[in-house]
Each structure stands twice: as C-alpha cells, then as structure tokens.
Design a protein around this nucleic acid. Structure first.
Lengths: 243, 243
DNA sequence: CGCAATCTTGAGAATGCTCAAAAGTGGTGG
DNA sequence: CCACCACTTTTGAGCATTCTCAAGATTGCG
C-alpha cells in the first residue's frame, strides 16, 4: 500500500488541531523510526519497560501467552499507534509487544515524552484520547470473541482493520495490507487455524472479501459490516470521512 | 461480608503512600455515596458522560450489548473501582455501566476531579495506576475467553474476584460475596447459562469451590489457581499480602 | 403464600476442534 | 536460475465441547 509521511501526526489530527510546532515535534519523533523485521519482540512480558513505542510502518501486536503455548493477541498496532503512555507508572509489562510484519518503529524515552507533553499539551491530549480508544477497542474485541460466531469475528476484525488503516491513509476505499498469517488471525480471534481458513473461504464464497497475496479487499462493505454488526463508533473516527 | 470504611482509599494505598490530607479528600468523596438498587444503569452507552463513578459497596459492571440481545460484560467493578478518569476527553460512552448487586455509588463531577488531581498529585498518580490495571485486567479477560476452556474461565474469574475483594478487605482468606446470577456469569465468560451451571457443578464435584447462597468459598486455592493458570501479577497487588 | 426469577436436568444438535496429510508459496543458497 | 526447504494454506474425517430448547425444581421477594 502507499506509504504516508507521518501516520502518527495524521492519527492525532483526527482528534485535535495541531499547531505547526506540534507537527514539527511529531515529525522529529517519527523520523527516528528504525526498521524491525517481522515477528520480533519489541518489549517482553514481565520485563521493566521505560520507552514508548511508536509504529510508523507495518503492523505490530500485543499478546499474552499461556504455559501450554496458546497465545492470545490482544491488540493490533497499526501505523500511528503507540503503547501506553503511562507505562512507567508500572514496573513491568503484563504482555509482550511484537511486530507481525516488517515495521518501522520509533522509541521515545519517557523523559522525552514528558518534555513533549509539557511543551505540547495538545499532543498530550490527543495521546490520551488515543489511549482511551485503544481501551474501547479492547472491549470491542472482548465482545467479538465473547459474543460472535467464527464468521462474524473474522468479518468484524476485517472491518475494523480497514477502517483503521484508512484513517491513517494506508488503505484505499476497499482494500488494505493484511500481512498476518491465518495462524495469527486464529490467535487474534480465539479460533484454530483450520477454522480461520474455513471461515475465510466462506467469506470469499459469499462474495464479501477477496484475498490476494497479502492484500485484503472488501467486495461488499455493506453486507460485511452487517454480518459483523460492525459499528465503528468506538474508534472515534467521525472527524474523518472514512466510515 | 464485612464492610470497610473506604475501599477507595484502601485500594489506592496499595499503589502509593497517601498523606492525611489525601485520605481526608478520599473520605469526603466516598461519604457522598448513595444507594443504588441492583441491575440499575449508572451510565448508558452512547450517551455523553461527565461524571466519574466510584463504587464503594456492592459489585457493578461494564457491558456492551448486541442487537440480538447478547450481552458481554467487559469488567466487574468492585468497591474502590472507578470508571475512566479521562472520560471527558470523549464525548460519549462506548459501553454501559451498571450495578449487578445493590451498591453504594459516589459521583464526582470532572470539575471536582480536576481540583483533586491538581491539589493531590499522589491521588492522581494512584488513579492512573488503577486505570492501567483495569486495562491489564481487560486483556486478561480477553485471554480468558480467547484461550481457556469453560471450566478454566470460571475458575479464573473466581480467582481474580477473590483476590480483588481481599485487596479491599471485603473477603476472608477463602471466601467472598458472589452476588451475580449464573446468567450474568455467562455474559461475563462468553458461555450459556446452562453451561455455566454445569461448569459450577464440576468445580464443586472436584472439591474446588463451594457456593452457599450468594457466597463463594474456595476450598482448594492451590488447585483452583493451577486449573485456571491464574497468575495475579496483572492486578499489581504485591504490596498487599493477599496473593 | 404465590409469583417471578433463578437454578438444574435431559436430550439432541451444531459449532468449532484435533489430527493428519497434501498442496501451494516464497525465500535462499548453490 | 533452479532446487530445496520451511512456512503457510487447504482439505478430510472424526470427535469434543458447548449450545439449543424445553421442562421441572428451587429460591426469594412482596
């Protein structure tokens, strides 16, 4: 998909109005992003953690793992997403943060973050809003796994992903990158790989989506949305004409 | 169960050291709590919301509901718990907050909250920590529903509940109130009422728990914990000798 | 005491899982 | 440029867990 100069700034501008100075700062942060290969841990569960992580390219995730190896992905991080602001209030992470696809990742020391939030209250405000949306998204994922059928779960996930990618200018009207494997989709939706595969086939059979290489294309947005009962309000993107 | 003068203060003291003035303020807030019957909405999904809600007695919950009536409870609120601090940054709630049992509920206008957090930075800090723990708990619930079997889900939920109730002095060594119905447990764990009932019977048959009236008693903490793979780290209660 | 809500039980059915293997894909080194 | 290898996707068959529907027992509230 097309690349975007600064998805972080773009995302925050959905919530607040940034000054030139604000944008300048965000630009500097994003410029420091470095390449990280796919499937690489950025911060590990149980370890202390003193940097804010920002994804500027690619897709990352948060996950927790059980002793038997079962893994639950609890969030996707798309370009513009960060980990928790207040991370330093706790002395260790309760989950692991990792890349799914190859990513560009910027890191901010909490010192720098504090400077920024003090000098740029509008950025601080926007990041708080972003954090609340992350939490609302987590709740929606719980509803997804707790209340929806396999087919509906995948459909809902795809709806959310496309909308979020559109919001940072990384999707066209109907398609976006889908770099994760079916195994990872299974870890996200609480299903097995086999059942993810069969659900994807069913979505294709119904003419709702198309998967080519690592690209997801939604063929019938309205029917997919209604199948998933997708109500994008929790993402708070109404400022943008993407929903 | 025994009542506690101020579970809010007690909870925050698990994270920070409060001054006498801090405690005084928390006391004043909690004193304003009012009785609310069971199964009453405190704040409704989709509505604007400008008050912080604090539960001082009883158990509440957050939930989201689907068009077909299916409901997913996304969190329990035990005494000392509040809703999000930053709630006013968003113009409406993405979920409903309600009581499960009869509760005492205090409400703080955001104006009052701002005063408090400005004059009492230690309280502000503790509330931020509490909010992070709420989010970590939400992640753990996602793992619960996404990765664990029916029996394990119930077991995990009970482990968490007992530990949280102990942390605010509302549980004995091995038992606490369990005011919610099996139907509500079903809405919490993503199962049907019938299956919750059978899982409870299985837990009793194995000698792990006892349910008498509305009281949960854990008969074999170590086996229940290991069945659920309960690792209470995410609750950050290590300051207290409750785990 | 009676009614409504909650809990319990049974039987049959469906959704989603397990195990196993085959087919397809992409990247790497020779 | 090809061949190989690891990973990913796909398929099949049988099975377990969990659900649905329905009805009966119990509990608690007014």
């Amino acid at each position: 998909m097309e690349s975007v100069s600064n998805p972080f700034a773009r995302k925050l501008e959905g919530f607040v109005t940034l000054s030139e100075a604000d944008r300048e700062v965000l630009h500097r942060i994003a410029a420091a992003a470095r390449d990280v290969p796919a499937r690489t841990n950025l911060a590990r569960e149980g370890e202390p953690h003193s940097e804010i992580i920002l994804i500027t390219e690619g897709i990352g995730c948060r996950f927790k793992q059980r002793a038997n190896g079962a893994r639950q992905i609890t969030a996707y991080l798309v370009p513009g997403d960060t980990c928790d602001l207040d991370i330093t209030l706790l002395n260790r992470l309760d989950h692991t943060i990792a890349t799914l696809s190859p990513c560009k990742v910027a890191r901010m020391s909490t010192l720098v973050l504090r400077e920024i939030t003090e000098d740029h209250p509008v950025i601080a405000r926007a990041m708080r809003i972003a954090a609340l949306i992350d939490e609302a998204t987590l709740r929606e994922w719980l509803v997804n796994i707790g209340c929806r059928s396999a087919l509906e779960r995948i459909a809902h996930l795809f709806c959310e992903l496309l909308v979020r990618m559109r919001a940072v200018g990384l999707a066209t009207e109907d398609s976006c990158d889908l770099p994760m494997t079916q195994h990872e989709l299974a870890d996200t939706t609480g299903m097995t790989t086999v059942h993810v595969n069969r659900s994807l086939q069913e979505l294709r059979r119904r003419g709702l989506i198309e998967l080519k290489g690592k690209t997801l294309r939604i063929l019938d947005w309205s029917r997919l949305k209604s199948l998933a009962e997708f109500k994008p309000g929790y993402l708070r993107l109404e400022g943008q004409a993407v929903v």
